[in-house]
Structure formats: structure tokens, C-alpha cells
Design a protein around this nucleic acid. Structure first.
Lengths: 112, 112
DNA sequence: CCGAAGTATTCCTTGACGGGAATATTCTTA
DNA sequence: TAAGAATATTCCCGTCAAGGAATACTTCGG
């Protein structure tokens, strides 16, 4: 499961809201549809996308399905984000990076 | 700038790769196009999307534009992700959440 | 066994998005 | 000032995703 799958699953506003909702605890399809003020089929479709992205799981309770968040995608996102920590913690701030790169560029020019 | 803007900017494979590239340091449009084996106009378009999402900035160097990552969106993503730490650190694992919710549901049923 | 509740699936339509190609813009240099 | 390099923009086209509406499927209660 690659990152773009997870990211595009989350990029849709309704699906992002579904994930936010499920953060509070498991919910059925109908409950989700109600909270988001969308129709049941749309809720099912969005949940299908989230499921295929590995972001939710569900358990069958009679004729209801109780959806729940899965932890793996969040771990994965956090792992990916960690690679950028040097940048957003500004150990190297953007000016540093820019100046350093300018120097690189200058060196390369002098080689020719 | 909301989360879905950032997420959909990252959801496109080429744009995700651009971000990964810029993690190593600033690059010009042409360099980015070369690395990704895409044509210059497409690189420009993707950079435009990333720019409007606040993910990159650029400095003008003669007739070149040197693009660089911005830290804010990454901070924002990390902040958002933090809300889910209870889940992916499995302090409450999914089974716990499920059982707890089942109890809730049971209580609600008995009220009627 | 029948009807109703809860959910999934299908079909259709529309809008947004990405790539290709051509062109416009800006800056440098000779 | 003309040519060329680097980049942005526009137009066209094909594809895909999301919503609406209708329908199928499953399970429970009477």
C-alpha cells in the first residue's frame, strides 16, 4: 500500500471527516451518513475507498457493519513525515538550504 | 489553508515525488522535470499546485526559479497526525475501542 | 414466510484533473 | 536588438471520481 493511496483517500473532504469521526470510536454506516449529512450509498462508497486504502476495518453485527480505524496507515504517514523533520524543525531553515544550494550551483558552474 | 488542500496536493504521484526531491535541497523547474522524466510544462503546473497549497516557495534567479520546500504544511500535518496517536500507539487498541463502543451501544438500547 | 431495516452495488451524468502541444513571457548574452 | 534559454500559460482531449437514483442483498422481528 503506497502513500498516494492513503493520501488520496484522505484528500476527499467527506472521507477526511469520516476518519475524524471514527477517531472518537467505531460507528455504523448509518451513523456516519447521519453525522455527515450525506446519503447512505455515498457513505458506503467512501467507506469502501477507505477500506481499500487500509484505513478502516469493520466487524459485522447482524445486518450492520461497525467501522473502525486501522492504525497502520497512520503509522506509515508518521514514518513518512519523520523524513521531513529536519525541514520543519528548521534545523536547516530554508534560507540555509537555499544558500548551501547556491554554493553547490556556483561550484558546478566553475567546473565547466 | 485546510488539510484537504495539502493532502490532495500530495496525493498526485508526480507531486509527491517533487516534494521528495526537494527534501534534498532546492531545485529549478528544469532540474525537477529532468529528475521526474516529465516535460517542463507539467513540472510547472505541478509546482503551481504545490505553491497554491503553500507547500513550496521559490526565489527568482535571473530567468530561473529555484523552488524550495516550506515547513508550515509539514508542521500542520504532524499536528493533525498527533490527534491519532492514541490510536496508532495502540494505547487503546482497536479491540478495546470496539468493545467499549459495544457497551455504549448496549446502554443506549436499554434506555429505549 | 413476509416486511422492514441496514448496507452494498450498479448505472448514469457531470465536473475536475492530468498530459500533450503550442505559444507567451522574461531574462541573458552576443 | 536579435537569438536562445528557462519558465509559465493556454487550449484541447481523455480519464476518472463523486453524487443521485434506483435496486439488490442480508438479516431480524413478527
Amino acid at each position: 500500500m503506497d502513500y498516494t493511496t492513503i493520501l488520496s483517500a484522505l484528500a476527499e473532504p467527506n472521507r477526511l471527516q469520516i476518519v475524524e469521526l471514527l477517531r472518537m470510536g467505531p460507528l455504523t454506516v448509518g451513523e456516519i451518513a447521519d453525522h455527515l449529512h450525506i446519503r447512505q450509498p455515498q457513505a458506503s462508497k467512501h467507506l469502501r475507498v477507505l477500506f481499500k486504502a487500509g484505513m478502516v476495518e469493520f466487524s459485522v453485527e447482524a445486518n450492520r457493519r461497525i467501522y473502525n480505524l486501522r492504525s497502520e496507515p497512520f503509522k506509515a504517514l508518521d514514518l513518512w513525515l519523520k523524513k521531513y523533520r529536519d525541514i520543519w524543525e528548521e534545523k536547516f531553515d530554508n534560507l540555509d538550504r537555499y544558500l548551501h544550494d547556491l554554493q553547490q550551483r556556483e561550484n558546478k558552474r566553475n567546473e565547466n
